[in-house]
Design a protein around this nucleic acid. Structure first.
Lengths: 189, 189
DNA sequence: ACCTGAACACCGTTCAAGT
DNA sequence: ACCTGAACACCGTTCAAGT
């Protein structure tokens, strides 16, 4: 089908195809066979390039988080960064079908050294004056909220249910503001 | 196998069996065939008592939420109620294997009348002086946070990852306190 | 009314075999 | 090195048929 220059698959084309299938079929329809078909290949071929489906989903989740981090540069203080990040993460989840559910169930793909991971994740908030522990905890809190909210937003029947009894769309910002406003820097005071 | 008094199945026995399978196998192992086997019956028999698997999961989710509501009586003000409810919901999720994931993906089973649902859900907070809109929105915010946090807690590899870079267990309360402290009653501007 | 048997159209994954 | 074919042990769901 093609082959002169390089293999049929590689990790990037694989993840790209997986996102394409996700967009068309949703997470429940994201099967190894459909991803393979999208690449003009048989399902077992995928296993040459990736250990299993969990690894593929983990790589997709990493991309979704990475988009959110990339979308919030130039914040003036840590509260502003958390507000920007919360909004960006919500948008990144919403940009892919079932993005939040994917990230909630995916295994993390990360550097083997915890210190490395911690430093990289904490960096943007540490640069704005937060101590490293708070940087990580505050992010975990914001991510948890955005993830939970986004799961409801993407769950069709649940979203309909909520939208009929409250202004669900506006509630996201209400909650995010409350969280960021309620968090307090252990340094200051 | 038995039959003198009543049918082999009924909705309650069915949901009970589903929770038993969930405990043993997790959400991915919760299959119609295994639930049926647990009841000494063939898989298609289940479809006489329940429309499909989604309905069964919805009923299970309702039970999980109900436990949390039942666990926080006697609060003195709406902030205290939200704190109690957040902790109770986290415990209710943790009591079942994959409880949070189940509730995140389940379709709501509810009264057909939205007003009914809204009134029932808002009731405990309205009784403590919150206006109905805030009662619903604040609950949605707390539930979103607890759900997201509980999903990470129940995702083994993710939990390990987080626990290595922060005091993940303590973070729950930090976040819950921030949210409840940051929310403000529109009545008492 | 309530359940079984058999079938349909799928899954993820393994593994020998091809090229 | 990279992919196919065939298979294994599963899924949720439908539906005629039994009792």
């Amino acid at each position: 089908m093609r082959r002169p220059n390089g293999p049929e698959l590689d990790r990037d084309r694989l993840i790209g195809a997986a996102f394409a299938v996700l967009a068309q079929e949703g997470l429940d329809g994201l099967t190894m066979r459909k991803v393979a078909a999208h690449l003009g290949v048989q399902a077992p071929a995928i296993y040459w390039h990736v250990e299993d489906k969990a690894m593929l989903l983990g790589s997709m989740a990493r991309d979704i988080y990475a988009d959110a981090y990339a979308a919030c540069p130039g914040a003036q203080d840590w509260r502003q960064w958390l507000l920007q990040f919360g909004a960006a993460l919500r948008a990144s989840f919403a940009r892919r079908r079932d993005g939040a559910r994917l990230c909630a169930t995916a295994k993390p793909v990360a550097h083997p050294d915890p210190k490395e991971n911690a430093a990289r994740i904490a960096a943007p908030l540490v640069a704005l004056g937060l101590d490293p522990q708070a940087a990580l905890s505050f992010q975990a809190v914001v991510i948890s909220y955005v993830l939970g909210w986004s799961m409801f937003e993407a769950n069709g029947p649940m979203h309909d249910f909520l939208d009929r009894i409250m202004p669900f769309g506006e509630t996201f910002q209400t909650g995010l503001d409350a969280i960021v406003g309620g968090l307090s820097n252990p340094y200051a005071h």
